[in-house]
Computed example of a mutant assay.
Amino acid sequence: MPLTDLHLDIDRRVDFIRAETPDWLCGKGCANCCRKLSDVPLLTAAEWRLLQEGLAALPAERLAQVSEAMARLVSQPMRPVVCPMLDQVSNACPVYAQRPVACRTYGFYVQRELGLYCGEIEAQVAEGKLADVVWGNHDVIDRELAALGEVRALTEWFARWQKEQA
């Protein structure tokens, strides 16, 4: 499966960076990126199918909370946005194993025109602290994603799924 292969490639890069830099900022409990999304995430059809599995496995109460957060996100004109799946008490993702590629690569991949995204990591780079890091190339990831089906906003996928469930 192409998405599984892509995840394995990403995991190898992330594991390598974590092994080389044990005090890496991105880790369980850090939800800075989840709280400061520049926009509603876009997902390919393959990513949505995987995420849908994670959402379907959530307890009804947690899924209802996600649904409410999605509804708020649709009507929220201001940016940045908070990921509607984030458990804001624990700073954990309840669908972590099924999370989209953008979440998997954030903080570990660089994009030619857009940089590293994370201000805290960029600050460490500016201080010379991460000079030895071999970043993943997000432009390559984007090319791989382009082959994984149509792209829609997370809120659109979720709304379609809810209609199918009704």
Results as ranks from 00 to 15, higher is better:
N32H: 14
L58W: 03
L42E: 06
Y117N: 08
M70S: 07
L114T: 14
E61G: 01
A92I: 09
M85I: 12
M70P: 09
L63P: 04
K28A: 08
V66M: 07
V81Y: 00
V74T: 03
N91Q: 13
R49P: 00
E61N: 05
V95A: 12
R35S: 06
N91K: 05
W24G: 01
P77Y: 00
R72P: 00
C93T: 09
L37V: 11
Y106M: 14
F108S: 01
G29V: 12
P41E: 09
Y106I: 11
N32V: 13
Y117G: 04
R62S: 11
Q111S: 10
V95F: 10
R18H: 05
C83H: 07
A97R: 14
L116G: 09
C93A: 12
D23H: 12
L25A: 14
L73P: 00
C33V: 13
R104W: 15
R49Y: 02
R18C: 04
L50K: 02
R104G: 14
F108K: 02
Y96I: 10
D39K: 11
Y106F: 15
E113S: 14
A71C: 01
W48T: 06
P22F: 07
A45E: 15
R49E: 10
E68G: 12
M78P: 00
G115I: 13
L63R: 15
R79Y: 04
R49W: 01
L37G: 08
T105E: 10
V101I: 15
A45R: 14
V66Q: 00
K36M: 06
A19L: 06
P41G: 04
R49K: 10
V81R: 07
M70R: 10
A45P: 01
A64H: 04
A45C: 09
F108P: 03
Q76Y: 01
R99I: 04
T105Y: 08
A92V: 08
A97I: 03
M70Q: 10
L55K: 02
V66W: 11
V95Q: 06
G107V: 06
V66F: 11
V89Q: 15
S90G: 00
A92H: 11
Q65E: 13
M85T: 09
V110L: 12
G29L: 05
L51H: 02
L86W: 03
V74A: 13
E61Y: 02
T21Y: 12
K28P: 14
R72W: 13
T105P: 05
R49Q: 13
V74F: 02
V110G: 12
C83S: 01
A64R: 13
N32R: 10
A69Y: 04
T105Q: 08
Q52T: 05
A19P: 01
A57F: 04
V89W: 10
L50S: 10
R79M: 02
C103M: 11
Q111E: 15
V66S: 01
L86D: 03
C83M: 03
E53C: 08
R49S: 07
S90D: 09
E20S: 11
